[in-house]
Nucleic acid binder design. Structure first.
Lengths: 156, 156
DNA sequence: CAATCCCCGACTGGTTTAGTCGTATTTTAG
DNA sequence: CTAAAATACGACTAAACCAGTCGGGGATTG
């Protein structure tokens, strides 16, 4: 539960890469995929989605590539995730979506909605610039996490 | 992304039900499943997991059922979710888990970890009692949420 | 005109999840 | 003492979802 999809992960890595490597230079899909060992075709789709969502600008042609469409501090992590995985929803019956039959009798909608707001805040308040502020390549941090795992993320 | 599994949802609904219907009375799987229209066998598994995790006490026999093992304010939403879906992890390479090959070069681990901490806080700070504080049956709240959806949840 | 890039949709295989089924064990009412 | 009502547990199925792949375009530039 609460897991980020790989695609969203890739998206964030790419956004950080683009933020760090200057807003001047355009980076190609291939360059980024090699830098982080991401399958090219998959990353390509991710970058295309980000471009379609307006978070990146693309330039075709021999020296083309992608650039951030806005300054890094003005792009939130939430935006990136939503561009890839769609709206952030915590439950099946998110808000209006009447696709929950049983949820007419559901008793936890409102409290969960409050929690969701806090999560969305956390994601909205951190920007791509914040990602880039950390060391370019993160240092290893280690814990133990055995067995089943609930994930926090964009819901793959 | 960020979606809660149905099972986790059911777990929270059941926990609230048990919190509201007094810590005195034991509620059976059947009673809860009927109250919220949840498939009995599925709910049964969920409740058994909660019991095994120590969040519920169970009593077999003709007038058996489940009760909260602790006062509702002392049971966090995070505990419930983790009992069902396992540890809250945001990324594949959560903390120690070296199961990410490429993530040796990953550049967003640390910043994401910080975000994860905020999310875990949000989930740890709300208790089952908070869930129960809302109206027993939540009032309809409506937004629009079209198309793809990122989910906030226990990661499955 | 050819290389290098972006663009887009369709497809496949594996994993996960929701939900089911069957069987055993415990408790209690009669 | 036995039948009913519960929990306990594990194996199974079907559907959804996701990661990753493939193939065919179109744009830009040397």
């Amino acid at each position: 539960m609460l897991r980020l999809s790989k695609r969203a992960d890739y998206a964030l890595m790419a956004m950080k890469h683009l933020a760090v490597n200057g807003p001047l230079r355009a980076a190609s899909t291939r360059e980024i995929s090699q830098a982080y060992d991401i399958p090219v075709e998959l990353l390509a789709k991710v970058l295309q989605r980000l471009a379609r969502a307006g978070l990146l600008t693309s330039q075709q042609g021999i020296h083309g590539g992608y650039q951030l469409s806005r300054p890094a501090p003005q792009i939130s992590v939430a935006e990136v995730i939503e561009a890839i995985d769609g709206p952030l929803t915590m439950t099946a019956c998110s808000e209006v979506d009447e696709s929950c039959d049983q949820y007419s009798r559901c008793n936890v909608r409102d409290p969960l909605w409050r929690i969701k707001k806090r999560i969305v805040s956390a994601l909205s308040e951190s920007s791509v610039a914040d990602l880039a502020a950390d060391s370019a390549v993160s240092s290893p941090v280690m814990f133990h996490s055995p067995g089943r795992e609930a994930t926090v993320g964009t819901g793959q």
